[in-house]
Every structure is written in structure tokens, then in C-alpha cells.
């Protein structure tokens, strides 16, 4: 009975993306699919990496979960659920009181992420006052505490400063404090370190992982950097041309990727290149949405594509021992991984 309860509990708190499809309205009434049939689930306490090149649909997926899609872009099928609450679905508006309270986001660009005309403490306190109905003084105190937790020195004093007095890394810490203010069950981080100096990147990632671990949050980390995923995430999913192509535990995927695209991405990372040799680039470019090639979308760039099995598709994802892959030739390929 207790097992059932705890399973139900983790259901109640996990982020469940099921069959999500997103399309943009284009000129002439056409719709261009941007994301097609994406499914994954993130349990509480789990860090999940969503990886892909620019235009693969990874950010779009994250934005849909928060109801932040631009005008003219909409969810056409599937759903995003947080426990029993549907956050996104066709024709669905974001329910009130969820954003900021149960699901929060850290953005890519910390330099533009804070209101320049508002003291940072006030910006954090605003969230607390709105969602938790805290009083002015209590919210201000809690805001300072949060700043301290994310590693800002002299938090009570710094809370009264304006954003322009903070460096990029410090601002990202403030953004994290703001996102964590209401103890959300899910934190979405969209390229949280891309705009930062390399030395600061590691600190911010450490902070994110520590906060996620301490609070048992589900973390969705959207990134194009496999190195970031390697150091922070439990599981990852790789997206290509709007679809998931591979999903599984980080260690296993890195050791033995099953999709040629994943293997190519791993081989293309400079830190995985053989010393003295250039990293192996993937030939060609990502196809633009609406102009996907027939058959396997990765086919034209794939070193393992063969006439026949790769001409029809996109094939369905197959699942075995906790891993999923979308490749017609997956069973016969033995792709090289990288040591972690």
C-alpha cells in the first residue's frame, strides 16, 4: 500500500510531457510543425537534460511547459502535466497560480533577466508577496535569506541594490533565488550558463544541482552543451528536427549511444576529440522547420544511413531496458561512446 502511495506521490509531483506537438502558423494559413510528439517524464529529485542544436525544438518544449509560446505558436497535440494539473495542451491556457509557485524558470540571459528599475530584493519579494501572501517585512527578510542561500555576500545589503551593480554570474544567482522563492516542484533552466564566463559557468551549475538536490525538485535543463549535461543530469533526451531521437540515463547514453546523431554529437565535442586531431563536425546543417527531408530527418547527415530502412519514417521510438531510441538501424549499429 505504501508503495502505491509513494508512486502516487511521485506522480503528483513529476513533470509529465506526453505526445507534445507544437506548430507555428505561417503565411497562407499553413502550419509549420516545430515540435512533434515529444514525451518524457521527470520525477522529483531528478535532473533531466534536454539536448539539441539550435532549432531542434528544445527551448520551444520548455516554453510550452510554462505557457510562454509566442503569438502564432501553439500546442497542437499532447499535454504537459504537473501532477494532476494540465499546464499545456491544445487550446489550454496556463492555470493561474502555478507559474512561479509550482513551476519556475531560469533564463538564458541574466543581463536582461532582471528589471533594471527595481531593487533585486524587491523583485524576489514580489514573488513571495504574490504567491505566499507574505507581508512586506517578512518577504524582504526571506528575499535576503534566499540571496544568501544562492551565495551572494552580505545579502541583506545587496538586496537593496539595483541589478546594474551585479555581474552576470551574480545576476544569474539572483535569478535562481527568484525562481526558488516559492519552493517550486519543477525548475526549468533554459541554457542557464550559455551567457556566462566559463569560470562562472561551473559555479552556477554547481549551485543549480545543489539546490535541486536539497529541495528534491525536478530539474529540466535545456542546453546544447553535452558537457553541461554530463556533469549535472541523471537522464537526458536528445532532440533533432523537433523530435526526440534518444532518451536514457546519462551514463549509459554517453557509454553507448544508440542513435547516430547522439554519437555524432559526442564525437563533435572538442573535449572528446583525440589529442592533436580536430573534433569531428557533423556534415550539413539542421533542416529548417517545415523543410524536413523525407524519411529519417537525420538521414542526409548520417554516416550510417542506408537506402531502404532509412527512407521511410520518421520511425517510431523503440524502448528497451529503460532507454528509447528513434532509428531504424539502431539494433544493428554499435556506436562508439565516450568515457566520462
Amino acid at each position: 500500500m505504501s508503495a502505491v502511495t509513494s508512486a502516487a506521490m511521485s506522480d503528483a509531483m513529476s513533470l509529465d510531457v506526453r505526445g507534445l506537438s507544437i506548430a507555428a502558423r505561417a503565411a497562407g494559413g499553413r502550419t509549420v510543425p516545430l515540435v512533434t510528439d515529444v514525451s518524457f517524464r521527470i520525477a522529483p529529485g531528478e535532473a533531466f537534460g534536454l539536448v539539441g542544436e539550435s532549432g531542434s525544438g528544445k527551448s520551444m518544449t520548455a516554453l510550452a511547459a510554462l505557457g510562454l509560446l509566442r503569438r502564432g505558436v501553439a500546442v497542437t497535440a499532447g499535454s504537459v502535466r504537473l501532477g494532476g494539473t494540465e499546464l499545456a495542451g491544445p487550446g489550454r491556457a496556463m492555470p493561474a497560480g502555478v507559474r512561479g509557485r509550482r513551476i519556475a524558470m531560469v533564463f538564458q540571459d541574466p543581463m536582461a533577466g532582471l528589471n533594471p528599475a527595481m531593487r533585486v530584493g524587491e523583485q524576489i519579494a514580489e514573488v513571495l508577496r504574490h504567491h505566499l501572501r507574505m507581508g512586506r517585512a517578512a518577504a524582504a527578510r526571506r528575499a535576503a535569506d534566499l540571496l544568501g542561500e544562492v551565495g551572494i555576500e552580505a545579502p541583506a545589503r545587496r538586496a537593496r541594490d539595483y541589478p546594474h551593480t551585479f555581474s552576470g554570474g551574480m545576476r544569474q544567482r539572483v535569478m535562481i533565488a527568484m525562481a526558488l522563492a516559492c519552493e517550486p516542484a519543477v525548475l526549468i533552466a533554459d541554457e542557464p550558463t550559455t551567457a556566462l564566463d566559463v569560470t562562472v559557468q561551473a559555479q552556477i551549475l554547481d549551485l543549480l544541482v545543489r539546490m535541486q538536490d536539497e529541495r528534491g525538485m525536478a530539474l529540466l535543463l535545456v542546453t546544447h552543451d553535452l558537457g553541461v549535461v554530463a556533469g549535472t543530469c541523471h537522464r537526458l533526451a536528445v532532440m533533432y528536427a523537433g523530435r526526440l531521437v534518444e532518451e536514457g540515463p546519462v551514463g549509459e547514453v554517453f557509454d553507448a549511444p544508440r542513435h547516430p546523431y547522439t554519437a555524432a554529437l559526442l564525437a563533435a565535442a572538442p573535449e572528446n576529440a583525440m589529442r592533436g586531431t580536430a573534433p569531428k563536425a557533423i556534415p550539413g546543417t539542421v533542416p529548417a522547420p517545415g523543410a524536413y527531408p523525407p524519411g529519417c530527418a537525420f538521414g542526409p547527415r548520417c554516416a550510417h544511413a542506408r537506402p531502404g530502412p532509412c527512407d521511410t519514417g520518421p520511425v517510431a521510438m523503440t524502448e528497451s531496458d529503460g532507454r528509447r531510441v528513434r532509428c531504424a538501424r539502431a539494433p544493428e549499429l554499435a556506436l562508439p561512446g565516450v568515457p566520462r
Binding site: L66, L68, A96, G97, V98, R99, G100, R101, A104, M105, F107, Q108, D109, A112, G113, L114, N115, P116, M118, E126, V127, H130, H131, M175, M178, A179, A181
Partner: peptide, 20 residues
Amino acid sequence: TYVHAAIVTGCSTWRIIGRH
């Protein structure tokens, strides 16, 4: 981004217009 951040933290439209 800070307006998006305000939306994500659950601010009402009026509050975003007035405060942000």
C-alpha cells in the same frame, strides 16, 4: 527577459505593466 521572468513568476498583466 525580465518581463518574461515576471510572467513566469505569476505576476498579473496589470502588475507587469505597472511595475515592470
